[in-house]
């Protein structure tokens, strides 16, 4: 622990790979995110921002999923 600082997915730069540690979201959205592969321990790559800056597309379990800022900044992980 303490090796790398935690950042949210939203703060990730294009090309960053982030290992998910926490999901600070509850309810249906949490379930949906888990189903899509945003599980703790999973590696997520930041793919690109949409033209207006939000949402951002991520690569997770080899698929590309776009999330809005509201959610992506509640998903935390370590930069690898």
């Amino acid at each position: 622990m303490g090796l790398s600082k935690k950042i949210s997915l939203f703060e990730g730069e294009k090309g960053n790979i982030i290992k998910i540690t926490d999901l600070n979201i509850d309810g249906i959205m949490r379930r949906r995110l888990l189903d899509l592969g945003f599980v703790p321990g999973a590696y997520v790559e930041v793919l690109r921002k949409s033209p207006l800056g939000d949402p951002v597309a991520f690569r997770v379990s080899n698929t590309s999923i776009a999330l809005r800022k509201e959610e992506s900044h509640k998903i935390l992980g370590e930069l690898v």
């Binding site: 997770v60 080899n62 698929t63």
Partner: peptide, 9 residues
């Protein structure tokens, strides 16, 4: 076939 991990879930 190109995204087996999530699909296997």
């Amino acid at each position: 076939a190109t995204a087996l991990e999530r699909n296997l879930n």
